[in-house]
Design a protein around this nucleic acid. Structure first.
Length: 921
RNA sequence: GCGGAUGUGGCGAAAUGGUAGACGCGCCACUUUGAGGGGGUGGUGGGAGUUUUCCUGUGCGAGUUCGAGUCUCGCCAUCCGCACCA
């Protein structure tokens, strides 16, 4: 009987669906384990072989954990709101919900063929009103909260209002957009509208004017992580800076906690570093400089990490967008400043990046007073100072900052070195190293001593205060698009008012077109009656990351209409134990999701402060393109090895009609009408194609569809092969070379159970050699799976099966545990064999075999011995020898050898595979 | 510029500090079958001897160690992330 994977895979996929094999419920009697994949955006192109890599890895882990007795939550869903469906809708007029549903159906079909153990009863779709009800709910909670810096926690905004009524802003320490101060009396005197505007300064979800990334082509704003080098990540359109009123999330309030809590996560160092970088903590001080414009005095606050260099300040610089620019521009410089500002404004973000390091600037005509020296220094304006970081103004220390140095050189400003013996004739001395000089009371200190000393001095004398600055900005939360979650907010007399919770979800209205209105409003402006109790409803929608920020919580309790997640379900499933997905979400989703979770944690809705305990980043699968070589002006194609003898053009050929770089000539003739009567110059009777590693894309004809592999080799082969290709975390090209080897292994595995006449498993007693093979494999698989080293596990299976095959082992005692071991990797074939072995229940309910060391230890060990690593001989030692004693002796002797220096060194190899040293005199 | 990762055969890749190249692909030889993108056996880093073997070998250069692909330092190369962040 042959291994008929088509029949087997269809049979078991239907069985799992019909029997709800992978459906789970909270079961207090078993420990939980939560394995999550980053849910996909269902694009129109369907899955290619790269997509399932992470899903297969996590599926193997889920199935393994289940065999080990865990109650495993392993759900899947769709991140279904997003730009592509909307762009498609604009072009075709088809409702995004329709195309999205179609794409989801296609995804599901493809996923089902690979045999995943998802609990589909928990599927979520972010565009489903029953789902986005809870996205909107979370937004309302954020709108109704502020961040208390003293308690380091989100609190209801009502508490803040109470405080204002009692003492105004006095004693309030809360995260805000700008420092405001008013008394209780002033607060009470405010109109409702004024109060509402004031509270926006503290709300966690708030509306405010900010400089945004505006993409004219897409007609919407984008978050920082949605923009790369001045172009939109989705679509690649140019992006410009624009000041607009937008909904924002006060993510910056959580910067400290987002940074600190990284410590306890089992994420890779590189990913943690990316987040640290993005959060960008820097410790320093804010120092106030008095500046004079004519008779008017202004305070300029600057941020610095190098308070020790204040004595070297020779000028100050403002960002062009800074509010101080207008105040400090002297009448005689007005024309020059305006010209400079106009020039700076005209430049796009893109141009600024391109012109990095080109020094530009203009003098304001004003001077500021150095608070430590009393010296007057000029105030300049330059693009190299960013409005969005720190205070938008800096003190310039050209001797010890390379940017200030370049500026000083360009505009011929003085440079005062502050460190003994440093050379600033060619470049600045940026290192925080050396002894201070020219620095008053700091003279003689090292830089490391001077920094805290300077800050202390500044604080004592009321010139400023210590400060920690973060690069992380608040997230811009509105998008001028149709296909997203509507904001449950309406404007009553112009005051942003939350809708009552029991009116959620606020469903997306129907519109005639998906384009902005003629007056430039977002598409929701087209909705016929987009009002609540007669008041207009917010017209922008939420960004993509809104729906994906808390989906892992919703899986815990997906059908709950009363809460995002019930307390019971949350207490049981807690958080994700293993999260698998791509690195591309390092600074987007993975930051927002952590923020969202912490916010819900502060309000007591979830019990864990971090959403994802362990995270694995699967590598990208690149495409492997194939080429044919056409001789110029002919329809004759020459094989790769002979192409240099002709003048040829290289043409991409569909990799699906090429096998191991050999072209299927008949298929090629049928592939495109132009090639129907193509001629070929062959080598050794075959047409060999060239190849290159490129991105997997339609235009290069190198997209390999998993359905194709499932048709030719079966899902189990696909799963094993994707794991066998190399470490999960590594990027690698897809190359079908070698898939035959894995397929051969499965056939051979099958032949342990069946020969051409039928089932051959017997109840005979296993030999020590057979038991050894089995138990070696158990030990290996346990260790490897825990370490996500799946490629070596697959190798171990191949070795084991080869050994058993050689021993002609067809004994139940060995084969039954073997099937369980392989089942996480190749579930279909294992279910089939499990059934053939007489089991009625799915193999998913089996238990992982126990490892017994006794079977793997040898009676006698052969030791290979070499003198000084040269001449070798072998010694046999009995296993009864006390290994620990041997090792202790070995170590002692090694020390002797080291001190005496004359002993010969002997290598001893201990089977299996262990090597220790001993010394023979 | 800053940060992270990686570097081993023709290829994908293995190696708790202990026989480097497991396993697979490809290739070579033999074998089985009427035939196969079939089954099996043996070989396969390089260089000598060709049965017993020896030399050399993990990007380059040092170091620690009885012993380094593995640990430390310095280069070189590739990939990824951030980038005027004061």
């Amino acid at each position: 009987m042959d291994y008929d994977f088509k029949k087997i895979e269809k049979k078991w996929q239907e069985y799992w669906a019909a029997n709800h094999t992978f459906q789970v419920t909270e079961d207090e009697s078993r420990p939980k384990y939560y394995v999550l994949d980053m849910f996909p955006y269902p694009s129109g192109a369907g899955l290619h072989v790269g997509h399932p890599l992470g899903y297969i890895a996590s599926d193997i882990y889920s199935r393994y954990k289940r065999l080990c007795g865990f109650n495993v939550l392993h759900p899947m869903g769709y991140d279904a709101f997003g730009l592509p469906a909307e762009q498609y809708a604009i072009q075709t007029g088809q409702h995004p919900a329709v195309t999205t549903a179609k794409n989801i159906a296609r995804y599901r079909e493809q996923l089902d063929r690979i045999g995943f153990s998802f609990d589909w009863s928990r599927e979520v779709r972010t565009c489903d009103p029953a789902y986005y009800k809870w996205t909107q709910w979370a937004f309302l909670k954020m709108f109704g909260s502020y961040y208390d810096n003293d308690r380091q926690s989100a609190r209801p905004i009502s508490e803040l209002v109470e405080a204002f009524e009692k003492n105004g802003t006095e004693g309030v320490n809360a995260a805000c957009s700008e420092e405001l101060s008013f008394t209780a009396g002033q607060w009470k005197a405010m109109s409702e509208k004024e109060k509402s505007d004031a509270l926006m300064n503290w709300r966690i979800a708030y509306q405010g004017v900010t400089s945004v990334n505006w993409c004219p082509k897409l007609g919407t704003v984008l978050a920082n992580d949605e923009v790369k080098e001045g172009y939109s990540v989705r679509g690649g359109y140019p992006v410009e800076q624009k000041k607009m009123t937008q909904w924002q999330l006060r993510v910056s309030a959580y910067a400290g906690r987002l940074l600190d809590d990284l410590e306890d996560l089992e994420w890779t160092d590189s990913l943690k570093d990316m987040q640290r970088n993005w959060i960008g903590r820097s410790q320093g001080a804010e120092i106030v400089f008095k500046a004079l414009n004519g008779d008017q005095e202004y305070d300029i606050t600057i941020f610095t990490t190098r308070a020790d260099t204040v004595f070297g300040v020779t000028f100050m610089v403002l960002a062009p967008e800074s509010d101080w620019v207008e105040k400090l521009t002297a009448p005689e410089q007005k024309a020059a400043v305006e010209e400079y500002l106009a020039m700076a404004k005209k430049k796009t973000e893109r141009e600024r990046i391109a012109e990095t390091r080109k020094v530009t600037g203009v003098f304001t005509g004003s001077y500021a007073v150095n608070p430590l020296t009393g010296d007057k220094v000029p105030v300049w304006i330059s693009e190299y100072v960013l409005a969005g970081y720190g205070t938008g103004a800096i003190m310039a220390v050209p001797a010890h900052d390379s940017r200030d140095y370049a500026f000083a050189r360009t505009f011929d400003l003085p440079i005062i070195p502050l460190i003994e013996g440093c050379d600033v004739s060619e470049s600045s001395f940026d290192a925080k190293d050396g002894i201070m000089c020219n620095s008053g009371f700091l003279n003689g200190m090292t830089v490391k001593e001077a920094i805290p000393a300077a800050i202390e001095y500044v604080e004592k004398n009321g010139l400023g205060h210590r400060k920690i600055n973060y690069r992380l900005r608040d997230a811009i939360f509105s998008r001028q698009r149709y296909w997203g979650e509507p904001f449950p907010v309406y404007f009553k007399d112009g005051i942003a008012t939350p809708m009552p919770e029991d009116k959620l979800p606020l469903q997306l209205p129907e519109v005639d077109k998906y384009l902005p209105t003629e007056s430039g409003e977002p598409p929701l402006g087209r909705a016929a009656d987009w009002t609540y109790e007669g008041w207009p409803i917010e017209k922008s929608t939420m960004p993509g990351f809104a729906g994906s920020s808390a989906y892992y919580l919703r899986y815990m309790d997906p059908h709950n209409d009363e809460a995002l997640v019930s307390e019971k379900a949350d207490r049981y499933w807690r958080n994700v134990d293993l999260y698998v997905g791509g690195t591309e979400h390092a600074t987007g989703h993975l930051i927002y999701s952590r923020f969202w979770n912490k916010f819900l944690y502060d309000l007591g809705y979830v019990c864990e402060k971090e959403p994802f305990r362990k995270l694995i980043n699967q590598g990208m699968i690149q495409g492997r393109s194939n080429f044919v070589y056409r001789i110029i002006n002919t329809n004759t194609f020459v094989s790769c090895g002979l192409k240099d003898q002709y003048e040829t053009t290289e043409i991409h050929v569909d990799v699906n009609i090429v096998h191991n770089d050999r072209l299927d000539i008949d298929a090629f003739r049928k592939w495109m009408p132009d090639y129907a009567d193509a001629d070929f110059i062959l080598e050794n009777g075959e047409y060999i194609c060239g190849y290159a590693i490129e991105k997997m894309s339609k235009s290069m004809f190198n997209v390999v569809n998993p359905d194709m592999i499932c048709d030719t080799y079966g899902a189990d082969t696909l799963r094993l092969y994707e794991m066998f290709l190399g470490p999960v975390e590594q990027s690698k090209p897809w190359d079908t070379k070698g898939i035959d080897g894995v397929n051969r292994f499965l056939k051979r595995f099958w032949r342990l159970f069946y020969d051409r006449d039928g089932f051959i498993v017997t109840d005979g007693k296993a030999t020590p050699a057979e038991l050894k093979t089995l138990h070696k494999l158990i030990a290996k698989e346990k260790a490897d799976i825990e370490a996500f080293s799946y490629n070596t596990t697959v190798s171990a299976f191949m070795i084991a099966v080869n050994e058993l095959y050689e021993q002609k082992c067809n004994k139940r005692e060995i084969l039954e545990p073997l099937v369980i071991l392989l089942s996480p990797f190749a579930p279909h074939i294992c279910e089939e064999l499990w059934e053939a072995l007489g089991h009625r229940e799915s193999i998913a309910f089996a238990s992982f075999p126990e490892y017994n060391e006794a079977y793997t230890v040898e009676d006698t060990c052969t030791y290979a011995v070499s003198f000084n690593g040269k001449t070798r001989f072998t010694v046999d030692l009995s296993k009864s020898m006390d290994k620990d004693a041997v090792e202790a002796e070995v170590r002692a002797d090694s020390r002797t050898a080291k001190y005496v220096g004359t002993a010969s060194i002997v290598k001893v190899i201990v089977v299996p595979g262990k090597i220790v040293n001993i010394v023979i005199k």
